[in-house]
Every structure is written in C-alpha cells, then in structure tokens.
Design a binder for these strands. Structure first.
Lengths: 158, 158
DNA sequence: CGCAATTAGATTGCAAACAATTTAATTGCT
DNA sequence: AGCAATTAAATTGTTTGCAATCTAATTGCG
C-alpha cells in the first residue's frame, strides 16, 4: 500500500519480471541442489518436505497428523498429497489409516524405517551447505524477506 | 564460506528447512497470484515466462531465439520446453522452424498474435500488484537477496 | 429424526520439470 | 574424405501441482 517512488510502468514491469523469474528459478535451483542428498535417501524434494513435517510433528499435541493438516502446513491439497503419501507408504516410510473417530480423516504415522531415516539427514545436509559455500547469514536474511512476501500473498487482502 | 556464528546443527537444520520450504511455497504462491491475470491471457505461468523472454528478445542481436537459448535463459531443458512451445504454437502465438544454417536448431518467432498479447500485459500486471498491496521496495530487496542465492547455486564452486 | 450443507480424501485430466534415451546434424581430428 | 565425438531437439517415463469432480462421512438445522 506504501508506493513511495514513482516508478515507470516499464520499470515496474521489469522489476516484477525479474522477481517472478528469479523466485521460480531459485526454487528450482535449490531443489536441484538437494538432489544428490535426496537421491541417497531415495526421496523427491516434496516427499522430503513431507517427511520434515512428520518428523517435526512429535512436538505437537497428541493428535496424529492428517492429510488435511499436512496440506495446511505445506500449502498443498489432497490431489497432490494423496498419491505422494501412497508412494511413501509403498516405500515403507509411513502408514495411512482412516481415523476411527471420523472416517473421513486419514491419520499418518511414521514407521520405524521412517524414523530411522531422520538420523541420516543432519550430516547429509551439513555436507550440502558446505559444498555450496552458502553464507548462513545471507540465508537468514533471505528467509525473512521471503517470509514477508509469503505472508503478503497467503494471508491478506483480496 | 564465512561461517561466523557457531549455530548448532539443529539450528542450521531448522533454518534451512524453513528456507527450503518458504522458497518453494513462495514460488508457488506467486504463481497462484498470477493465475487470474494469466487466465485472461490463456497462458500458464511457465508459458508466460517464455513469452516474456521472447518479447524481450527484440533488443538482442539479430539472431532469432532458439530452444537452447531460451533454455539457458530460463534454466529449462528441451524436455520441458519442446512440449510447452508446441502448445504456444498451437495457440498461434509463435512459430517454430528448423534453422536452415544448422538443421539441429529450432528458431522461434512470435506471430502477430503473440506480439499483440504483449500490449495487454502492463495494465493487467499493474492491477495485480495493487490488488495484493505488495510493497515495491520490499520486492526490490527481495529480488537482490534471491539473485544472490541463485548465483551461489548456479554459477559456482562444486 | 431427516435431510440439505459441509467436510476430508480420492480421482481424473492436464501441464510442467526433469532424468534418461534417442535421433539427426554438425564438428573435429587424423 | 571418413568416422568418432559433440550438439540440439525430441521422446519417454515418473512425479509433482492443481483445478474440477466425485464419494463418503459428518454436521447442522428445522
């Protein structure tokens, strides 16, 4: 709402084009960067994000994660998650079971194998960050910037 | 390479997880934000990026853009671009033709219809930015941050 | 209670991404 | 010239994203 500078239409276009593209390209570049590590785990990037959420879930209230809750966390719907979760189940990393209390819900639970995988991650990730020589301070700043944008786009106005 | 602070493994993990996810989510959120505008143009987001590059190409040397050149610009390969370009051709926005000088190359040229579309964009985009109340200064800062990361991930070391 | 809305997942269909392979044209080297 | 290596696209197959639709369970309300 605070449009202080009188940028020309062309300037705004150019800036916006660049941001669009850079955000899109950077996201894919990060995914590509994770590929070697994820290959070792046998996961795709979205599958990895799902595993991260499930690993974190232990700190939550006693409720088991559902497909819906996972979707809210990752901003993904069942059209994406259902087949992805089936693949993770096939790999033996988790189990999916209809909730007894409400048969519409599907509870997700990591298997032993799913938990064990977690232990391999910190070392792999550390190696990854070092290898690319990424500046952690820069990452902190970037995370904040992106968080701001993400909030503007997901919470607000329209 | 300048790892000044002694973050714990857990801190680094957490930070990194958040960045991964936020970058991925922000990219998709932006694409979602463009949807209404792109629906009016009948384009998908990647198709739109391709059109942007082609619209910009006029400023380039006399060479016509090729699939390869487009791919270098957008960091995409022919496996993605070939079918996408075929769809744009079907829509009558561009023509694909084997180069006479080198039959391996495919030259891309916008049609009249492809050029006309360009004129609709500034107004649509302006409306979009206003609607979301995005702070332009923030966008400038974000673009720089992301540009830095993108360079680290695409140019360097490994 | 009974039935219309709502809700959670699943399904279907299309368009990316991307790895791996294939095809055809061009280069380069001897 | 002749042939191996390289190069540009195309093709194939798998996995996302996401809209739209469908199914089944649950809620809410008269």
């Amino acid at each position: 709402m605070s449009q202080s500078k009188p940028l020309t239409e062309e300037d705004a276009l150019q800036l916006d084009n660049q941001l669009c593209f850079k955000l899109y390209a950077a996201s894919r570049a990060v995914i590509r960067g994770y590929k070697p590590m994820l290959d070792q785990l046998g996961l795709t990037y979205p599958q990895y994000l799902v595993m991260l959420v499930l690993w974190e879930w232990q700190l939550k209230p006693p409720e088991l994660p559902t497909v819906k809750a996972l979707g809210e966390r990752l901003l993904l719907d069942s059209g994406t998650l259902t087949p992805l979760l089936k693949r993770l189940e096939t790999q033996g990393l988790l189990r999916r079971r209809r909730a007894a209390s409400d048969e519409r819900e599907v509870h997700l639970a990591l298997t032993e194998s799913g938990w064990v995988m977690r232990e391999q991650v910190p070392a792999l990730k550390h190696a990854l960050l070092c290898q690319h020589g990424v500046d952690l301070n820069e990452l902190v700043a970037l995370r904040k910037q992106i968080g701001g944008l993400l909030n503007q786009l997901t919470l607000p106005s329209h």
